[in-house]
Design a protein around this nucleic acid. Structure first.
Lengths: 245, 245
DNA sequence: ATACTTAGTGTTGTTTTTACACTTTTGATT
DNA sequence: AATCAAAAGTGTAAAAACAACACTAAGTAT
């Protein structure tokens, strides 16, 4: 009994990473060869998406995509928007892609957009033999389907969400320095922040725990390392859902 | 040529209103009679949702539901989450509903959740002869399908969103008093706010314009009326996307 | 005239924000 | 051993925002 694939529902995961310098997004190269001539007919880039099995919740499908890619479970993952425009897959190349995977090119395919944050150095990437690579968000070119739109919305969501929720450390190693943390905010917002004010602000966040450890192997004064404590965060969040408008 | 309905895609609109006292949500009573005996077999309540036409963007479908209900165009409307669990419509009553509208009860039906804010006194409600009524959110009982879950998520989204975006006046008449505005926040959050601090805070919001008008027909000191200026808001929003974490 | 009801207002102490520049600590180089 | 390079780490003062708190004003109803 093989598992049935939904013919009209898919998930796309906008997988954000951080290389110490820029915000990156995971891009898949997809090539399609003509079945007869073997000639290359399409060479497109896309976000990492996938089908959903008929009996599979969409959150599970998104997690499956992430697990297949990164080998990681428990990656930060959040649904942000659903894309269902009737013409979203009606460009000629889109239609070829659908046909090549046995889909009905007339069907209205709905995709639920998730975004995800991973520490790029935590993972060894692989995906079904396809070439996947990190691309700085600012250098992403034209993507197939409506994936440029999806990326744009995901980025907007991320930029807003980090104002109110401490999720940026998901892009960093478990132990990180305050400068690294500041760099993440700067990379996501594309602006510079004041170092002293930034540090005063994070000093108030009880869930950022200073360790008795320092950076090693750097050719300058080594920075102190910090970890994020989910326990402390959950506790303070429960105490204080900030109601002031 | 009749317009085709999508067999697997729907929208649900969580329509929030405010009665001057409590936050309310629009609920539809649905009854189903046995085709043979005419006997009432189901009497369920649901949120206001509908099918999506095959050639219709989901935003249009959601706006159509709102227009059919309220006669209003340009109502505040925002997509907040998509519900696609494979078992979301597998309860016995859900299956009866699907059959009664000619749907395949086996199909996996995806619903995109929108929420919407309307000033209840702006609208005369009607919906295809069905009984629709405002119910205080705190008094909503068991709903059919997964609509209790959808309502819960919509409310959570609303509670969060009003912290950062001025959308509360959508629940009020065009001209409103500061007390009314404060009451809306209190109703949505279920807490009380300090009147003086609240007024100091809104005084800083340049997009709340004080009119040279006062309330009439009240048996006490009449309050000044205010309007929301979208122009001013859009301008200040562009100037200041608040980057501080 | 009086009572009732909601509108509207100010102060003080505390916390947060913003703007801004120099010293410290390490490894690398000579 | 001395110097250099590079990033870490730190404080202050003025302005703004926040939090707690109670009385007077202005209109209708009787």
């Amino acid at each position: 009994m093989t598992r049935q694939i939904s013919q009209y529902l898919s998930v796309d995961c906008v997988l954000f990473g951080y290389n110490g310098l820029e915000l990156e997004v995971l891009i898949v190269d997809r090539t399609l060869n003509d079945t007869d001539s073997g000639e290359l007919i399409i060479n497109d880039c896309t976000l990492t998406g996938n089908h959903v099995y008929e009996d599979e919740p969409i959150e599970d499908a998104a997690n499956r995509v992430l697990f297949d890619l990164t080998g990681l479970d428990n990656v930060f993952l959040e649904q942000f928007k659903t894309f269902a425009h009737p013409n979203r897959l009606k460009k000629p190349n889109d239609q070829l892609w659908l046909k090549s995977t046995g889909r009905d090119p007339e069907a209205r395919i709905i995709t639920v957009g998730f975004y995800s944050l991973v520490a790029t150095d935590k993972v060894k990437l692989q995906w079904k033999g396809r070439n996947v690579r990190w691309v700085p968000v600012s250098e992403v070119g034209e993507l197939a389907f409506d994936h440029n739109l999806i990326l744009e919305e995901a980025l907007r969501t991320l930029q807003t969400r980090i104002k109110y929720e401490p999720i940026t450390f998901e892009l960093l190693p478990d132990k990180f320095t305050l400068t690294q943390l500041q760099n993440v905010y700067e990379a996501i917002w594309g602006i510079e922040l004041d170092k002293r004010n930034f540090r005063k602000k994070v000093a108030r966040m009880k869930y950022l725990i200073q360790l008795d450890e320092k950076q090693t192997g750097v050719a300058h004064k080594p920075a102190r390392l910090y970890v994020f404590s989910r326990d402390v965060y959950d506790k303070t969040k429960k105490e204080l859902f900030d109601f002031t408008i």
